[in-house]
Design a binder for these strands. Sequence first.
DNA 1: CGCAAATGTTTGTAGCTACAACTATTGTCT
DNA 2: AGACAATAGTTGTAGCTACAAACATTTGCG
Lengths: 149, 149
Amino acid sequence: MSLEHDLQQEKFSSVHNKAAVNILYTSSWLYNLNASRLKDYDITPEQFNVLRILRGSHPKPLMLADIALRMIDKNSNATRLVEKLRQKGFLKREICEENRRQVDIIITDKGLNVLKRIDSDEAEWLAKLKTITKAEAQELNRILDKLRG
Amino acid sequence: MSLEHDLQQEKFSSVHNKAAVNILYTSSWLYNLNASRLKDYDITPEQFNVLRILRGSHPKPLMLADIALRMIDKNSNATRLVEKLRQKGFLKREICEENRRQVDIIITDKGLNVLKRIDSDEAEWLAKLKTITKAEAQELNRILDKLRG
DNA sequence: CGCAAATGTTTGTAGCTACAACTATTGTCT
DNA sequence: AGACAATAGTTGTAGCTACAAACATTTGCG
């Protein structure tokens, strides 16, 4: 559906400005879609993102700064996100003995399991994104990467 | 810069998934860029968005629900955003006499002025988006609209 | 060695958001 | 007219985020 219709706005000052609004609006739409599918698993998109990052490096631990670097939204507070996930038993934290300033963070079996359960809905999730073709998705990725410079 | 580099992640499970992450990440990047330019005017991106919506209908008032409908992030609380802007003197609220359930909201001269001042930086802002061509911006808009279905 | 700078993380606090419950007003149906 | 639903907006509250300041540990250097 056109952005003009969705936001009830008939004109934008420029194509570039419209693109900026479109990205923000589509992102919000996507975020809400993602949040609602994750709600069944009692996990937020930010928490899901952290767990996926940890699975990516498993069984090697990551320190907090590594996680923060890889997070989609750099503003979220990694310390408190990790603590929430620890309380749920999805990861464990250990003070690193080689460098006692840093904390080694490792996903637990329980964490891997919840990701596996979420993966089982992956097809359904992907279907929602398949309104665009693979070629369009590739082009989208190219343009977004170029935009960020 | 490539998403893989930015998020230090070497592979995505599919192009579509990568596109979803790319939209969320680029949106966060854009949001922060926008927030930092608006900081000089002591206004948040959400508040700026509301003011632009009101300017779009000026001098016709909008009711709260109209604003909420046009907002980029539908989750933000329109009541409290409007109240913040009223406290700053950027808009006024009047109970509509034809239908006393609704509130007529109108941007003030002070509100129009702050928008005008922000507009004067518009070129600098647009320049940050001009890493992509006009054709690419158009294609981006087309693909994002198609994605939302 | 001793001390300042750098690194890695935590925490305090004000402000913002999400969700649901609530109030007030108008519309509809018999 | 009276009752119930629909519409418009507000508010309570728990939780989350932003930003800066604090803390702990290690590194570099005179």
